[in-house]
Amino acid sequence: MLRHWKTRRYCIGAISGMVCLLVGCGSGRDPNLPETAPVYGVVTLRGETLPEGTVRFTPDDPLGNPASGMIQSDGTFEVSTYSRHDGAVLGKHKVTVVVDPRLDGSQPDPPFSIPKAYRDPKTTPLEVEIVKGNKNEVVLNIDG
């Protein structure tokens, strides 16, 4: 009787494991979501690369999801919408740049400030169009 129970537990465990593997093997992305294209680039502030912050691509199409990416120390970024570095949805976008306070309370040296207009999709002068099949390499120049 005990051997029968151990065999049953082993079979249940094996079947559960196979179900978990099969569920994890799907594409993971809903085919009905808007198509994306890779987007990468660099951000400059008054002619110098911006070493930190976040860029956000807000599509003109209200059905499209926004994309965002962290600005690296060399000013470069890649954006993501649904998964890491999948880019932004196709079409026109307003682009905002934000530098949030550091979690440790330290300040950049030298300090920098993004003009308010560049932090809001309604007022930002930065606009780009993301096109399927293009490199979609963007240079975002912040003046002021």
Rank of each mutant, 00 (worst) to 15 (best):
F112M: 10
W5M: 09
I130Y: 01
P125W: 03
R119Y: 02
V98F: 01
V89C: 14
L63N: 15
L22S: 14
V97M: 04
L63V: 06
N136I: 03
P125C: 07
E48F: 09
D120Y: 02
M70N: 13
N65F: 11
L50K: 00
K92E: 12
T76Y: 06
G13C: 11
D104K: 08
C11T: 13
G17W: 10
E52Y: 07
L21H: 07
Q107M: 14
K135L: 15
L21F: 14
V98M: 04
T124H: 03
L33V: 11
P66L: 03
P108N: 07
Y10K: 13
K92H: 09
M1N: 11
T44Y: 13
V43N: 01
K122A: 15
M70E: 14
R46K: 13
H93M: 07
R84C: 06
S106E: 08
G13I: 03
G105N: 09
F112N: 04
P115G: 04
T7W: 12
I15G: 09
L140C: 06
R56V: 12
V139S: 10
H4R: 12
V42H: 03
S106N: 09
E48G: 05
M18Q: 12
E137A: 09
E129P: 06
I12R: 09
V99P: 00
T54H: 01
P59I: 01
I114V: 12
K116C: 04
T49I: 07
V98R: 08
C11R: 15
A67V: 00
V39K: 05
G41T: 03
M18T: 13
M1L: 10
K122N: 15
P34D: 08
I130W: 00
K6E: 10
P101Y: 04
A88V: 03
G47I: 06
G87E: 08
V23T: 14
Y82F: 15
G41V: 01
D104I: 10
F57V: 03
R46T: 08
R84I: 12
E137V: 07
V89W: 01
T76R: 13
G17I: 11
V55C: 03
G75K: 02
E127V: 11
A14F: 13
S80G: 07
N136R: 05
P59N: 06
Y118E: 01
A67F: 00
M18P: 01
P62S: 08
D30A: 10
V128R: 01
N32A: 15
P121Y: 05
S83V: 15
R3V: 11
E129F: 06
V97G: 02
P31K: 09
P59T: 01
P125K: 01
S68L: 08
R29L: 15
G75Q: 04
P115V: 00
D60W: 04
V89S: 06
S83W: 10
C11Q: 13
P121I: 06
K132L: 10
A117L: 12
E35W: 02
P108T: 08
F57A: 01
T76H: 07
N32T: 14
L45P: 05
E52A: 14
G26E: 09
E78N: 10
K92S: 13
N136M: 07
I130C: 02
A14Y: 07
P110F: 04
G13W: 05
V23K: 10
A88H: 04
E127W: 00
S73E: 13
T76G: 12
L50R: 00
L63R: 14
G64R: 00
K122P: 04
